[in-house]
Design a protein around this nucleic acid. Structure first.
Lengths: 114, 114
DNA sequence: TTGATATATATCGATAGTCGTACTATGATA
DNA sequence: TATCATAGTACGACTATCGATATATATCAA
């Protein structure tokens, strides 16, 4: 799963939201690192609905503007949990290796990757 | 960064390796979850070399077969470290939300995402 | 009142990384 | 002698994301 899609699910794990709300929330949740593009967002929502990870949760008109709400399904929550554990695990493995590498570089800079 | 590319760097963090060796190592490192395709691997290696994250580290002929060796550069190690922290952080944020959501679902199943 | 910014969604061509498959070739094993 | 593991090359197809454009309302500043 790519990062934008991951953040769509993570955003909805917080509760029911509308498209633009997801964009703002994902930016905040990622400390500004993830700025979902509108094309990416709505394409992802369509796809995630087809996969059953997200469901439409009502349209509302607020201040003359349409808001399309979405919410996470239980399979969506499970998928996000699996994906989170996968990424945490990947990060741990890579960090372990980088730490060992750093130890080698300190000991012998030129043969660090030998 | 996508998962296959991440594992190419993670594999090389362990030391100099040849293409096929990276495929085997990535599979082991990921507990069998990541099986790099040859097309993906060599395309990634070409790209990572252009980006300066990886360098060719000599060709060898072993048992009549060509082996193309690669190693991680310092910028490559830094990129992997940044990417690992990014993924660990993303996973933490998502897991936090899932835990809060689970608490809500236990308290009130039908209004969990309201 | 004109322009800029924020909110909110729709749509679409281009891009990039990955996948899938086929191909060549050697050495080891059954 | 057939199959599997090793090792690399090549290329078309796929798909999520990007980047841009369009539409529309509300608010605020110049």
């Amino acid at each position: 799963m790519r990062e934008p899609t991951f953040f769509v699910l993570a955003s909805l794990a917080d509760g029911r939201k509308h498209g633009y709300g997801i964009i703002k929330d994902a930016e905040e949740l990622s400390d500004g690192r993830v700025r979902l593009k509108v094309g990416t967002l709505y394409a992802a929502l369509d796809r995630l609905q087809l996969e059953g990870l997200v469901v439409a949760a009502g349209d509302e008109i607020v201040a003359g503007r349409l808001r399309r709400y979405f919410e996470l399904t239980e399979p969506g929550a499970t998928t996000l949990a699996v994906e989170s554990e996968r990424q945490a695990s990947n990060a741990r493995r890579a960090t372990d290796r980088l730490n060992k590498r750093a130890a080698r570089v300190v000991a012998s800079p030129k043969a660090a990757t030998a």
